[in-house]
Structure formats: C-alpha cells, structure tokens
Design a binder for these strands. Structure first.
Lengths: 187, 187, 187, 187
DNA sequence: ACTGGCGGGACCGCCCGTTCGT
DNA sequence: ACGAACGGGCGGTCCCGCCAGT
C-alpha cells in the first residue's frame, strides 16, 4: 500500500467526488447552522461517512471553511483590488463590480456574511477582515460620519440581498442588488 | 484573585449593579466573538467574578441572550406590528420606523444580526425568524423576484449600517440609514 | 447581637421547630431518593427555606444523616451490645431483639438499608459497617458457608420487611418479621 | 501517562476486550460505592484509561448500568413471568425459582439491591419497580397485613443473602437461601 | 481511502460551603 | 435566624486530533 503523501490541498487519490460531496454537505450545513455550530460528526452523518473520514480529507476542520470560501475571497482580492477608487465615479464602478463578484459566489456568501465566517478567518491574506476593507474602498479621502454609514449601508444591501436570495434568478439578483446598493450609496 | 476595593461594590445592601455589569460585559463579548464562542468563564473573567457567580445571576446561559435582546425584539414586535403595510407608502413608513427601532437598540443589533443570534433564537415569540417577518412586511401582495431582492437589500442596508456604526453619532446613523434603506427600497 | 457559639448539635435558639421540620423533610426525601441524590436545595425547597438556612442548622450536610440515624444506631449498640451470643439460644434471642429495635426505628431503617446509608457513615463508632457487625454476632465460633448464608438471610428478612412495611401496623410488623427472621435463621 | 506495554493490548485487530474490562471494573465499583457515587473518572482510572475512552464505549453513563443489569432483569421477566402464582404451592415454587435466578446473576444483584439500582431504573421495562412486582406475585388474592410483611421478609431474605454472599460457594448459596426464603415465607 | 479506539481540552450545570448583611 | 451573593470543584457531554491498522 502506497501511503500517498498528502499535499497541501489534501490527498489526491482515486475518489475525488468524495471530497466534493463533503464540501457540498459542509456548505449546506454551514449556511444553515453556522461554522462553529456544525461539528465534523454532523457533516459525516450527512454525507454517510465517519468523522475520521471527513477529517482525513480536510484537516484541520478550518480547511473546510478555507476551501469553501477561498475562491470567493480570491476573486474579491483579484478583481476588486486593481480597481481604482479615487473618484466617486470609480467608487460607484467598484460597488457595481462588488455586487457582480458577490453574485458569482452567492452560494457561499451566506457563510462569509455570518460573524463566525468572515471575522474569524485567520491568515487568509491580511489581518483586517475583508468586509472592513471593502467599506474602506468606498470612502473618500476624508470621510464624514454620513459617508461611513452610507458605505456600510451599501455593502449591507449588497451582501444581505445576495445571501438571502439564493432561490431567485441570478441575473435578477445581480441587476436589482446593484441598483439597490448604488441607490443606498447615492442617497 | 484581585480583591476588589470594597468601596467600589458598596457595603450597604445588595449589589444589583453586578447584574448590569455582567450584562454589559456579555453584550461586548457577544458582539465581538459571537454567542456560542463566548463562554461563561470569558464573561466572568471580564467582569472580575467566577463562572459560578455569573451562572448564579443568569441561569441558564441562554438567559443572558434573552435579557439582552428581548427589549429589542419586544420593540420590533410592539412598534412595527400594528403598522399597516398595505400600500407602498405604508411600507416606506414601515421601513422608516424599522430603522428608528434598530437605531434605538443599536448596541445589540449586532448580536441579532449574527447567524447565531436572530436566526437561532428558540421560542422567543413566534416560530418564523424575525428577519423573515420584517422582509415579508415589505413585500406587496404578489411579489416578483425583483421585489424580493429589493426588500432584502433594504433590510440589509438598515441592519448592517446600524450594527457597524456603533462609533458614529446616533442621529447621523438614523438619518443616513433611513435614507439609504429607502433609496435601496425605491431603486 | 450575641453570636451564640454553636455547640456540637447546632445552635439552640428560639425556633427549635425549624430544625424538626428540616429533619422531617430530610427523612422523607432521603427515603424516597437516597442520601446522595438529595441536595440541600431539595430539602430547602421542601421546607420552604433557602439552602443557606438549612446549612445553618445542619452543617455539614452529613450531620443531617447523623442526627437522623444516630438514635437508631445508638439503640443498636446499646441494646444489642451487652447481649451475649455465645450459644445458639442466645443468638436467637439476639435476633428477636434485633427485630424489636429495627421496628422501633422503622422510619429511618430505610435510610440505613440503602447502600449509601449504612456503608458510607464515617466515624460513627467503628470502621466496619454495622450490618457486618450484626451478621457477625449471628455466627457461631467456626462458621460454615451455610451458616454465613443463613445469617445474611435472617438479617435481610428482618431489615427489608421493616423497611418496606411502613404502611402496616407496627405490632404486626414486629410479630411477623420476628417469626420470619427466626424461621430463616433456623432453616 | 503510563505507556502500557503494547503486547498486553495486542497489536493485531481491534480490542473488543476493552469493553469487557470496563464493564468488569464498573460492576466492582458500582457494588462497592453505588452507581451515583461512581464517576466515569473512577472507572477510567481503575481500568487504566481516560474518562473519554470510557464514555466512547458506553454513552451515556447509564448505558453501563443497563448493560450490566439487563441480562438479570431479562431473566427475571422471562423465567418468572410465565410462572403461575394462583395457589400457595405455585407461589412457593415461584419463590424457589426466584432464588435460582438471583443466584445465577449474583454478581450484579448487589447493584440491583441498592436503592439507586432497582428502584431508580428509568424505562427498563415497565413502570412499577421490579421488586414491588415480585412481592405482588407472592401475595394471595386478599392479602392481610401479615401476608405483606411475610412476603417482604421472604424477598429480603433471598436478595440480601445472595448479594452479601459473593465469597461463598454458589450451590451452598442457592440451597441455603432457598430454604431460608421458604422458611420465612411459611413462618 | 477509510476506520476504530483513544487522548486532551473546554463548556455547562450542579452542589456544598462561606461570607456579608439584616 | 435567615437570605443574597459568590467561590471552588466535579461530573457528564461534546468536540477535535492522533495513531495504528486495513
């Protein structure tokens, strides 16, 4: 028996769909009950495996979170990072792009929206939570209190709309959420 | 460990402020780390008591959550319940009122906004989560998909703006968040 | 305020019936649920006091047990101790006397009969549990295995009959239990 | 702590005897100190494991009690249930059989005899405690007070004799206890 | 690729005991 | 004589992680 050296992403063996099934189950349970409130046993029972099997593929438990949300976070960083936000028009374009990225990863945005999701992600880039970074990009040089509240409103409108509209058509969500976030931002 | 100066606690009569101090500490920690991730020991250490003393005043642990958020939930039900939402103008007035109530309880809205807060509160009134009820009040008779997304946007704008602007002046938050939520709702 | 030095039996103040009420409640609860399974709070609730008040009168908790069963144990030692058990006739007289003493204290024999009663009484005379001592008195000089089993049968017949017949007339219990224990002993 | 010699545990296959060792330790400790007074840590220390390991095999703690006494209770129900007790001769045969069953499970009868054993077993068959059922079987149609006391005497003679004679030969216990119980019943 | 067995840690709940105050 | 408040400790449960084995 060749004890395959597990790479950083976990062992790449002959049954890749097991990993996918675990990830799928974890995403549903994380969305429903939160990350901390979901145990490895819960996921294992849901998939039909044992706790050890789940831990074998994803170790430690946090890696489940990482593999689920890292694509979304990578997109957030890659697509929104190079966008300039110097002028107000640029910030509005940034907000449009933000909604597009959120909608593209709408299935995991609910996880990121929960407090135990976004806030408690250690060492996935920088120290400040992504949500704070997003808001910072929406502020002018010398933000006034109303600027701050409006920026949070815009991000909140976009995030909650996407996370709570998983049963609505994707293009409708994108279009309407974009308009709503912009309207809040321009109010 | 630290023999607190007896003058601070007051030698006369009982110590009713201990409950207040515990509640205050719990609110801060729940906001920062979430309800499930905060143990009685954490709160006890923060207040300067032992775990047993905290459990003496609030038993079981869920009682802490209830006493913190029940005023806010009671206001949500009492003030928003009788408001009619038949016409669009009435729904906009409802949204205005919603922001006002949220701002009034801004210190605990962050707890209610977290997944383990509003969504997972067992038996604190009715079965459906309050957030769903709020959104339902914002929808017309036969809601279209865009209506649904817009309603979530409006609620999200209000909630996140209030929860993340604790360091901003209250009247600014109320005014700006109201305008932003209405703008998202009207977009 | 004169801080009356509490004697070994507790403070002798102005409300002696409180002690009696606590003892009465403790006896009932110990009989129903066992000593270890009965907390001071249970007794306090049953009497209508607080836990502290109960602990004030009986401290530590074990003193409740002691004050309940010590009269019975004292009688066991006083009346059965001087009885000679050298001959078989003397041992039969001893057994008769044993039943009489058990019946006299029938209200607490149930407590003594439970394992956590008799066995876990520390420092109430000697180390070996009283029940073992009773059986030893029923054995001849060189006991055979049948002697041992018969002695335990006789004690068991007496003890269980008394403990489980609290609702029967006392004289009937005394007469019948005596005959049964003797019959088992003579079988 | 103590790295047990791996030869003792056997490196091949699973270790099913661990359950047996835990059960054996639990039986001894329950007999000596009672069920409630014996903690999982006590058992774990006695076996040479940790509390977690014990809880892994038997969860919850009550499962230990159930697995220990259920064979005896099953025999009590299976063998004594169908026996008719209409006439006095049948009841005497029932009593003979009772002693035989008790002796067969003499290693756990002590647990069942303790107050927290037989009396407080929740949902292990029917509602009324088994000991009461046994006594009921020994009573005639219209029992008089002496009948009741004698029945308790007979059961007590059998039970205590068996529980306290673990160090005596089994056939002696069976023969003598049977005679003693019958003698008490006939007295 | 997957499992059973087991360790270590943390958390909540409970209980007894004590001190201060009345 | 009694109550409110609080401390220290333990018991049972749950969870993640590790190891040997297959």
């Amino acid at each position: 028996v060749t004890t395959a050296t597990p790479g950083a992403t976990g062992p790449s063996g002959t049954e890749p769909d097991t990993r996918a099934r675990i990830l799928d189950s974890a995403r549903r349970l994380f969305l429903a009950r939160g990350y901390a409130a979901t145990s490895l046993s819960d996921i294992a029972t849901d998939v039909g495996l044992t706790k050890t099997a789940v831990a074998y593929h994803f170790h430690p438990k946090e890696r489940l979170l990482v593999e689920l949300v890292s694509p979304a976070l990578a997109d957030l960083a890659a697509e929104l990072g190079p966008l300039p936000t110097g002028t107000r028009a640029q910030r509005r374009a940034f907000l449009r792009h933000l909604v597009a990225v959120l909608v593209r990863h709408r299935d995991v945005i609910g996880i990121l929206a929960s407090d135990t999701g976004l806030l408690a992600l250690p060492a996935l880039g920088g120290s400040p939570p992504p949500r704070d970074l997003l808001v910072a990009r929406l502020l002018p040089a010398r933000p006034t209190p109303p600027d701050v509240v409006r920026a949070w409103s815009a991000v909140g409108a976009a995030q909650v709309a996407v996370a709570r509209s998983l049963d609505q058509p994707e293009d409708v969500v994108r279009t309407v959420a974009t308009a709503a976030a912009l309207a809040a931002y321009d109010s």
